[in-house]
Amino acid sequence: MTRTSVMVAVALIGLGGSAFANDANYGRNMASACSSCHGTNGKSVGGMEALNGYSKDKMVKAVQDFRSGAKPATVMHQLGKGYTDAQIEAIATFYAAQK
């Protein structure tokens, strides 16, 4: 990710973040939709990538790359388009904190 795109992403996250600020569980709840495949709190039981402890920036970047096609995917390019960067940031913050 280039420096400017990081800054843009941070700006977007800042805006989006405030919209969810009144719900402390927003990231946890949003992430639970991913857990059906990636395991409860990201703890995959196998065959899918574990997301617990996954670096936040790396996750935001991975989903951006799925959306753009830069990272090959069977399904994540479609699912990734359902979320804004700010929403992925909220999800990624939750997963990064899972042991």
Partner: peptide, 21 residues
């Protein structure tokens, strides 16, 4: 494709664990 044949079973194992384990 066969890759998704593997993902399909991995989906099942993970969704069962997410619901029941």
């Amino acid at each position: 494709n066969e890759i998704e044949g593997k993902y399909a079973w991995a989906w099942a194992k993970n969704v069962w664990a997410d619901a029941l384990l």
